[in-house]
Simulated scan of single mutants.
Amino acid sequence: MRVSFQRLLKQALFVIGAGMVAVCANARADELIVSAAASLTNAFKAIGAAYEQQHPGTKVLLNFGASDVLMQQIVKGAPADVYASADQKAMDKAVAEKVVDPATRQDFAANALVLIVPKDSQFMPTSLDALAQPGVKRVAFCDPASVPIGRYAKGALEAAGLWDAVNAKSVLAGDVRQSLDYVSRGEVDAGFVFATDAAIMPERVRVAMTVPTQTPVTYPIALVDGSRHAADAKAFIAYVLSPAGQAILAKYGFKPVGTAH
């Protein structure tokens, strides 16, 4: 059964918009707002805490969601100082909309696309072809038009000649963490997430296979144009790229740039 992504997107925009209004109302001069892809949630919470320890005068406010949704929020005036996306296309859109400084854009991590199934599932596909089987009724992923994980999944399915067949079974999620939740609750037969997302629920999901992608799964980060905390934002970006920041990312399963396939 196909879930309306438009409804999910509207809900996401409302929730993020409401959250950003609260952020704006409570923001202080020493608060740095970082808008980052949902798949970075655990790693960036740890990075934010570590950064605050080294910069006791700064409070890092983290805003997570689908990369394209976050970018659109910034375009519409939501406060942000740093933007980190889960693919290059989302950052390309941010550059085209002139909401980030392209001179500060740098790739800082790599990931992998994986196909997961519920932990207790008897279905354990070893190829994408298995998703086209009649017994597979629901497959979770995100809208390729709006969410990076959806773009990676669509590219892989198109390369395998399976896009139409699997898309007909899609249960669209608002972001990669929602796709993970659908699988963990057994609401779908399988789902596409990043390897780092699957790793946070080993007791509820299993990785059936690592899925080759047409483009490497890489994460860019940049300074939001017009940031009122540009110096702090650049320092945060530098910390993410530093050995200390990279060690935290590695702890949560992210790979160094250049190792993505």
Rank of each mutant, 00 (worst) to 15 (best):
N26Q: 11
V257W: 01
M201G: 00
V205C: 09
A233D: 06
A238C: 12
R206W: 01
Q246T: 11
A112G: 09
D225W: 05
I16T: 08
L128S: 09
C142W: 02
S39K: 03
A160I: 03
D197S: 15
G161Y: 01
F108K: 05
L9I: 02
T126Y: 11
V117N: 05
S179A: 15
G253R: 08
R28M: 06
T215P: 00
I237D: 04
A156G: 09
L180A: 08
Q72C: 09
L241Q: 15
K119Q: 14
V205K: 07
Q122P: 12
A110L: 06
Q72E: 13
Q6P: 00
K93C: 07
D101S: 10
F5K: 00
I149G: 00
V217N: 04
V139G: 05
D143F: 04
A173D: 03
G161S: 08
A222H: 08
K93G: 11
L13W: 01
D232A: 15
I221C: 14
G245V: 10
D101K: 10
V207D: 01
R7M: 12
V207R: 09
E158F: 00
A18Y: 00
I221G: 10
P56A: 07
A159G: 14
G150K: 07
Q72D: 12
S121P: 10
I116R: 02
G48N: 03
L180I: 03
P118F: 03
Q88A: 13
D92S: 12
I74H: 01
R185M: 12
P212D: 10
A165V: 11
G174Q: 06
A156C: 11
G258H: 08
P56H: 06
T126V: 14
A244G: 02
E203A: 14
S4K: 11
L62A: 05
A94Q: 06
E31C: 01
D30Y: 02
D92H: 03
H55R: 08
D30Q: 12
P79I: 01
S4W: 06
M91D: 05
V117W: 02
S85Y: 00
V23F: 05
A29K: 09
Y252K: 10
A238G: 12
A80G: 13
P256H: 12
Y51H: 11
F192A: 04
A244Y: 05
A50N: 00
V211N: 05
Q178H: 08
V95T: 13
T259D: 12
A173M: 01
A18H: 10
A250S: 14
M201R: 14
F14K: 13
A160H: 06
N167A: 15
V82Y: 04
P56N: 03
F254Y: 15
T104D: 01
F254W: 08
I237P: 09
L13A: 11
Y182A: 06
K98W: 05
K255E: 13
S39Q: 14
S85T: 15
G161H: 07
R28F: 00
I221D: 05
V147Y: 05
F141Q: 02
K89Q: 12
T58S: 04
E158V: 08
N42F: 11
E31R: 04
R177C: 00
A159L: 07
V240P: 02
F14N: 05
N42L: 13
K89M: 08
L128Y: 08
M209L: 15
V139I: 15
A37H: 10
A199D: 09
A29Q: 10
S39F: 10
G77H: 02
T218F: 00
A96V: 09
A18P: 00
R28Q: 14
G186N: 09
S227Q: 10
